[in-house]
Design a binder for these strands. Structure first.
Lengths: 113, 113
DNA sequence: ATCCTCTACCTCACACCATGAGGTAGAGGG
DNA sequence: CCCTCTACCTCATGGTGTGAGGTAGAGGAT
């Protein structure tokens, strides 16, 4: 019952950590958790479905590979379409956070007509 | 079908515009719309329910008053509890947006243990 | 008078999507 | 042989915004 803030940012988070290079699912979760200072704890309930959705949309490509020690892993890498999607999501996120700031801080927007 | 980003920020937006002073519901929506540069278009489907919820929680106080020209209006003002809630929500929002930035920009968190 | 439009309030079925719990399977230690 | 950890996956549930609909008063136009 934490909060609803995460809604709509999951694709951005996943694409964001994959920009640096190939990672497997479990590792993506760990990376997000670590970079956010444990504030964003990736539930597997949204992580895997998000990966599948992004793969289906062509934003990610994936391949199975055996792990050094343990079960096989599914490695994901970002595609050109994924990079475009990432850029869009970042733009949208920036615009939204700017708007929230303007509304709550009482600044008037000086954006486009 | 726009996006889900708004989820969890509605209370923050409403409390934010009411910090300056008393406003009635319809006006709150217009203020949010205007300050966000029309990017956040307040649906009445969440605006009124949010006002009712915040009033029930004691974050807002409200009173009916006749409009100059038109239907009666319900004016809302923020309470002491509402100001505390606003501060909490702002803190949470700031922390969350900072985390998202750290994750997507690849910066490591240097936040609190 | 009647109709249309605008303000101003409200509600509800619907859909999206994260939560949290549960489930499979391989590898290594006690 | 059991327990734990990694690593994948799925699904019922629930919070909450979307979009459409609904009431009512005031003012202008026909």
């Amino acid at each position: 019952m934490r909060s609803q803030l995460l809604k709509g940012t999951t694709a951005l988070l996943v694409l964001g950590v994959l920009r640096d290079g190939e990672l497997y699912g479990y590792e993506i979760g760990a990376r997000i958790r670590e970079r956010s200072g444990t504030l964003i704890a990736p539930g597997e309930g949204w992580l895997y479905p998000t990966l599948h959705r992004l793969e289906a949309e062509g934003a990610l490509e994936a391949s199975w590979r055996d792990g050094d020690q343990g079960p096989r892993r599914r490695y994901y890498r970002i595609t050109a379409a994924g990079l475009r999607l990432l850029a869009d999501q970042e733009r949208e996120w920036d615009a939204f956070t700017r708007s929230v700031r303007q509304v709550t801080r009482g600044e008037l927007a000086d954006g486009p007509a």
